[in-house]
């Protein structure tokens, strides 16, 4: 069995500190090419923000990272390892369901529509995966869940059902749910797009706190201000390729590509 980070690093030239490593990532749905060769490096402990018009492939790329979508071509490693495959010599063996689940558990993901389990209380949402995937004892899972809820400022909502919470609260619970798995990296798919404007701030605050604790984050967002403040790198995608990437502050102040300029002028 080989798919060990060290071997992959040597073979594919993956930097030592890489959390997400993408080279030539392609994805097509039938005849529609959504990603046409994307290269991204996200070092450990950094925050990468991806912006771009709708249909640019940014969400698809995010979904490729945890193997919700299978790549059509290219390579994508998380912490130096394949997510959906085992590499032996020149063959990529698709891994079994159970193995895939264990690996996915290391990669947290947040959605635009929160996607809390609507038939479970907040507490049940938080302990479901730790108990069933990680086999954490229920009592321990519960006490960890309470800590996490305190961190997102929702301690009093333990026994509420999702529909009793505001959108901002739901997204904060979703973040706590993802954190309960102690992931290596968190993926955010437009986490604030479905929120009323006055609720965006509370979610961004939680994300800011997370970034400060050194969590590696890949954030697809429309919040340019957030990207400028928190992001370590900004990636502008359009038409399935990366048009421009760089330091957020520099890039927003002084975009190089005319397409980036045009996009930024529309969203700022």
């Amino acid at each position: 069995m080989s798919n060990t980070p060290s071997e992959n690093r040597a073979r594919f030239g993956v930097p030592e500190d890489s959390m997400v490593f993408a080279r030539g990532v392609r994805k097509s749905f039938g005849t529609l090419d959504v990603l046409k060769g994307v290269d991204i490096d996200v070092p450990k402990g950094s925050v990468a923000c991806i912006i771009g018009p709708s249909g640019s492939g940014k969400s698809t790329f995010l979904r490729c990272i945890n193997h919700l979508e299978k790549l059509t071509g290219g390579i994508l490693l998380v912490d130096g390892a394949f997510v959906g495959y085992d590499l032996r010599k020149d063959r990529l063996y698709e891994v079994k369901d159970n193995e895939l689940c264990q690996r996915r558990a290391e990669i947290g993901m947040l959605f635009q529509s929160f996607n809390l389990f609507s038939h479970m209380t907040v507490m049940e949402n938080l302990i479901e995966a730790p108990v069933h995937v990680r086999r954490v004892p229920v009592e321990q899972a519960k006490s960890e869940a309470l800590e996490l809820l305190a961190r997102v400022g929702l301690s009093e909502k333990v026994d509420s059902y999702p529909r009793e919470l505001s959108g901002g609260q739901q997204q904060r619970v979703a973040i706590a749910r993802a954190m309960a798995m102690k992931p290596k990296v968190l993926l955010f798919d437009e986490p604030t797009s479905a929120l009323d404007p006055e609720l965006v701030g509370e979610v961004l605050q939680v994300m800011r706190d997370l970034a400060e604790t050194g969590m590696t984050m890949v954030v697809v967002t429309h919040e340019i201000g957030f990207a400028r403040e928190i992001g370590d790198q900004l990636i502008f995608m359009d038409g399935g390729v990366i048009v421009e990437e760089g330091n957020p502050r520099e890039m927003i102040a002084n975009p190089q590509s005319p397409r980036t300029k045009e996009f930024l002028s529309k969203v700022l």
Partner: peptide, 14 residues
Amino acid sequence: DQGVIEAAKVSGLS
């Protein structure tokens, strides 16, 4: 909701 199923998938549930 497909989104809920995806949320379960990415939590690593079988």
